[in-house]
Design a protein around this nucleic acid. Sequence first.
DNA 1: ACTCCAGGCGCC
DNA 2: AAACGGCGCCTGGAGT
Length: 767
Amino acid sequence: MTFDPARAFPPERAATLDLETFLVEDGLLTPPIVCASTARLAAGGVAARLVAPGVSRVEKAAGVARLARELLAEDGLVIVGANLPYDFGCLLAEDPSLLELVFQAYAEGRVFDVLIGQGLHAIAEGNHGQDPRTGRDLDGGYSLELVVALVLGRVDAKEHAWWRRRYALLAELPVEEWPEDARLYPVDDARNPLDVMVAMVRGGGGGVTPGPHRNLEDMAAQAESAFALHLGAAWGVRADGERVHELRARVEVDHAEFVRRHARFFKCAACGRPATAGCACQGRADLKEDRRERKRAVVLAYGGGAPCVAPGCVDGKALSMKTGNRINCAACSGTGLYPAGAPRTPTGGIKADRDALVESGDPELVPYGDNEPEKIRGTYLPWLERGIIRPLVLRPNVLVASGRTSYYDIVQTMSREGGVRECLRARGAWCGAPVEYCFCSVDYAAIELCTLAQACLWTVGWSRMADVLVETGSPGALHTALAARLRGWSFDDMKKAVKAEDPVALNFRWTSKSLNFGLAGGMGSVKFVLAQRRKAAGKTTSPDGQVTYPGLRFCVLLEGAARCGAQVVTEWRGRPTPAPVCRRCVEIVDRDLRPAWFREWPEVESYHAWVSSMVDAGGEAPCFVPDGDGGWTARRVRGGLEFTSMANGSFQSLAADGAKAALRALTREAYLDSSSPLYGSRVIFFVHDECVAEVPLDRADAAARRMVEVMVREMKRYVPDVPVVAEPALMYYWSKVAKDRYVDDPAAPGGRRLVPWDEPGEARRAA
DNA sequence: ACTCCAGGCGCC
DNA sequence: AAACGGCGCCTGGAGT
């Protein structure tokens, strides 16, 4: 039976809801309501009206809440809007008694968000995040204005928008005294989503994506996920002032030292003079990095140095074709040096990233490449500092092309090292919270291997990876099993050796883990070697102990080479490599490791064949979900894919969909189910396979156990034939190194109670 | 002063 | 035959 959007979301049973509110500000995502507007289809057209009864803001807000209650309670009515979680968030702040009705509407699939609808359609079309008229990337997701233009072809969506950010001024005035534009704008804003929704489900819009839209079968899940994300985002997260200040002090010291040591790579931000020369602005302007100098150093370190021979290039400068200005010569990236042997960027520039510096072996460039404090200083600290006085509220984006989520904030990309995450602190008396909380973080173990195994069961019909998972019940066993095979040991021997932290065993397990995570998506030998020489992948010490390399060096680890990179290649199988790379490492991977990996998981070859056939058939991938009958179906498709995107996307989207289902279930329970140990907890944010919640300290153990239960249960609905494991940790400060830590407690299940693994700030400092 | 882009880099 | 993917933010430099 095919899905019919006009049956699932009947326009004749739909009403829009849109609020005008005070402005969102730091720490507050649910500002006071001023008025609402609503629209629905009526005989001969659309009936839209403004709701702002009475004189005072409080009267108006109460009227708006009454309207919302009527709409939510109307049997079968579909609520339509743009970014509805925002409106519901404001409503719930105004009138918490609406909570059950809101969740119920979501549970019944009666919430239709036109922004999500446009994203879903774009995913099917293979142009998510782009303006389909121009192909250019969208700067901040889908807005109502954009969607109205794309679906209806109307460009007047914000015609009366002058008042949009000024409704606070009208809050205490009766509506009769409002300017006409202020009365019209909300009505437009209610009418537009309804017109859009009708086109999305029936077709007939006048724009470039006139409808009917594809993928709307996934609307209910994504809309509720958006609501769950928004609730967590509005709750927000606090930063610990003392830790942030400590971190700031530390990185400023590090930064000053770094600039002093590498002064020749810095120049005055105001006048551009080298930091070493001094200038009139000194002390008043910041220093900034001189990219040209950085690239020159790379060219020289990689054996270049002759003058650039490009036509028109004089000391790295050439004349712009457009403006005639002197700009950097494209051939030498402005260095004025012929870049023989230097690593290059995809567009032909000189690659001067950390890898290029560190691998140059140049005694000055190697330490210059290691500038971890810069990212902390420039990216993480400014954000953390906003969270000292007020909570950091987040701006989630429920749906990206892969089916995963993103944030227009940095929560999903917080550095695991350097004490950055550890600045986020669970609320408690220290910040005036009425309840003591701790963080509970639960993440899935190797979930994308579990979903890969499930995808293979569906596309290939069998999976040795699934067999091992079922046999061991442990995703980590996939790494151990491969390590055992690579080393020629039995599984049990490898397991024991790893537990005993035998260095050889650990090397093999690290290597295996990397192979398992990289190769399923179609990664080749060269990129694999390059990826594993990143700092985060560990480190490798030469047999004589004289050199320690960042990352894994297979020539050293597996074949005892004295040095990595004794021979370097810039071309492999007739194609240039993204960076110079150790020949022996590539050979080991290409000749031994990669084939061994495919022998270990032979289903992947067939899986890749399935991917190839789907790419050949048009590049449209089903985003699998179980059909409840042992097979799969697709609630969403993703178009425009090539081999590697589809090879990855097919298990990535399954993991994303399962994790989102878990997020929804956790959120429902935390808000609605007073009998659950999760009641009163708040799932603050979501990092693909990890849910981070604030849970009341007095029931943290039970809440954590329940989070694990719910997350496993929900993921199992998406990954029915493979075991799923979720691992909890409690902590006062967010951390990736947090492990589950138990104390004996006869009253707790199993006689032990999960407790925070770290200490609250005061205890830490005293210690 | 502003926008745009490439490059770089953090996470899963 | 061969092929990791998915994000968003910051910076410096070019263009306007």
